[in-house]
Nucleic acid binder design. Structure first.
Lengths: 134, 134
DNA sequence: AACGGATTTGGGAACCGTTCTCATTAATGG
DNA sequence: CCATTAATGAGAACGGTTCCCAAATCCGTT
């Protein structure tokens, strides 16, 4: 199979974005990643952060979801490359844990098929308060 | 508990917004509702549309989701008041059908509990192409 | 019917996150 | 070391949503 090509080649900024995201175990907004990098003394532009975030998303290295407030948030998920999965996300600190969801996958498939829908995709995210934030 | 009170009293504009939404069987954006009303000759402001959409949402008469593009879209769901449910949404025309999801509810509950999360909420939406759009 | 207080309305400004533009800078390889 | 190409980042542009506030409307009371 033709491997999905990275849109940007490995650069210092790209690595910085990836590392910043990898350092967190939760979903972060682009702005927040940018803020962290700048606070860290890194020289990087907001556009670049968005660019790499997009590229990583295209590569499947980063997961994207929209939290209940509609914000776009990203998370490093390179550990389970390609593997489709879902999360339990803390709505307070953003921390997230991957969860197994094959049952949900099947349910989504069947449900959509029953309604006659094709080319199906789905969004399944569970939000709550993690033990620490509760 | 104190019942969630409607934020606005029944007004002509409120009714117009509700009717516009009820007339559609899919999720629509605030802007789109506004456009339809204006095209219909109605005198109404964008702010007012947003206001009523919010009020209806608070009252549970309208469902809100963020589609994969991050847009906020609303749907009239007064038919199943209070009843928590999910949808199969056409990503092309916005048409949506309610689906039964008690299995998913249980899965979400259990999954969150297993991770030690509390005050759990979840997002489950299935997107695809409806028979007509396929 | 007329008045007065409270509520709703809506136009426009403000806001915020994201995307776009493009001149500058850095990397590549010949 | 030069030339070509890709990446960068500052700021402008954009689109959706919220905020602000003066004008309009509604409602209970005389």
């Amino acid at each position: 199979m033709s491997p999905q090509q990275t849109r940007t080649r490995a650069t210092a900024q790209g690595a910085a974005v990836r590392d910043a995201l990898r350092a967190e175990d939760g979903f972060r907004s682009a702005q927040s990643v940018y803020a962290v990098l700048r606070a860290d003394g890194q020289k990087i532009g907001l556009s670049t952060v968005y660019r790499h975030l997009q590229a990583f998303t295209d590569d499947g290295v980063v997961d994207v979801i929209h939290n209940p407030d509609g914000e776009t948030v990203y998370r490093f998920c390179g550990d389970t490359p390609g593997g489709h999965h879902h999360h339990v996300v803390c709505r307070s600190c953003g921390r997230a844990e991957e969860v197994e969801g094959s049952a949900v996958e099947r349910w989504a498939e069947q449900t959509a098929a029953k309604a006659g829908f094709v080319d199906v995709d789905h969004t399944v995210e569970v939000f709550g308060l993690c033990p620490d934030c509760a």
